[in-house]
């Protein structure tokens, strides 16, 4: 079974290797653009910086390979002897500096926006455990744990003999997702009960460490309803790879209904 699947992958891998370029579009090879204003800004920033790097790279490597081709000895090139030029040195110190300043502006703007904690409408406290998450709706007295779903958990055991391909959203599904309303500025607090974890949902453009004894705050505002999947990003021990995050974003009515249903099941305890 294992051998067969391994062989299959090896085959697929080699084929893909050969046919890679045209097929690229079908795979996730880039950062998702996400569903929050911040995630869009991050995506644009990422693409801008990336393009600048590609351009610089093309230029530098272009010059280099031209020189390698043109000034090779086998082509009869005679070595020059120049080895200094203050002008050039100044130019290629100043121009990168200007480029960097150009990058720093949008980056700073986005960062400042991310740190803006005003106009918060609701707060969820997220606590990392080895190896699950605990969510606590501070204003509404609802709280629960969220673990890797049973199906993935069974399949991911060493030598389980089960095929991950048969599990929907393998390793990215939980028993109980975090439900959030769309269009609302939500404050999220992270902390941990044992070791450091990190709460990451790429589509929301957020990743924040959950540190025992301390609370970090950040915010998100989801634009579209949907299910957004993420993971624990900080190594937290043996099952670090098996504590996903699932956020279910719903519209306000649905959210209220969900809250009501939860109030009935969550025991009324202090929300600490």
């Amino acid at each position: 079974m294992f051998i067969a699947r391994a062989a299959w992958r090896l085959l697929v891998g080699s084929v893909i290797l050969l046919a890679a370029v045209p097929a690229l579009a079908e795979w996730a090879i880039n950062m998702p653009r996400g569903v929050t204003p911040i995630s869009h800004e991050i995506y644009d920033l990422h693409m801008t910086i990336f393009s600048i790097c590609v351009a610089i790279g093309a230029l530098v490597f272009g010059v280099m390979f031209f020189s390698i081709w043109k000034h090779r000895k086998s082509r009869g090139a005679k070595a020059d002897n120049f080895h200094e030029s203050q002008t050039v040195e100044i130019i290629w110190t100043v121009i990168p500096f200007l480029i960097l300043i150009g990058m720093a502006f949008p980056a700073t703007k986005t960062l400042i926006k991310m740190e803006d904690m005003s106009d918060i409408e609701m707060t969820v406290k997220i606590t990392g455990y080895q190896w699950m998450w605990h969510y606590d709706y501070l204003e509404d007295g609802v709280s629960f744990y969220s673990r890797l779903d049973a199906n993935s958990n069974k399949t991911r055991q060493l030598d389980s003999g089960l095929n991950p391909g048969d599990v929907p959203d393998y390793l990215l599904n939980v028993d109980k997702p975090l439900v959030l309303p769309v269009g609302v500025k939500i404050r999220l607090l992270t902390t941990a009960a044992d070791v450091i974890h990190s709460w990451w949902v790429p589509q929301l453009g957020v990743k924040k460490d959950a540190i025992p004894g301390f609370i970090n705050e950040f915010w998100t505002q989801i634009e579209q309803p949907g299910v957004y999947r993420g993971v624990c990003a900080e190594l937290c021990g043996k099952d670090h790879g098996f504590m996903p995050v699932v956020v279910k974003a719903v519209n306000q009515d649905e959210y209220q209904a969900w809250l009501q249903s939860q109030r009935d099941v969550t025991p009324k305890t202090a929300s600490l």
């Binding site: 992958r9 090896l10 697929v12 891998g13 893909i16 795979w27 996730a28 090879i29 880039n30 950062m31 998702p32 991911r156 991950p164 391909g165 959203d169 393998y170 390793l171 990215l172 990451w200 790429p202 993420g230 993971v231 624990c232 990003a233 190594l235 670090h240 790879g241 098996f242």
Partner: peptide, 23 residues
Amino acid sequence: FVGLAGMQRRVPDYALQFADFNA
């Protein structure tokens, strides 16, 4: 690619969309 698409480091196992590149 897999990093940008959301694969975290220090894990022995991963979601299916990362399978091809990991292979």
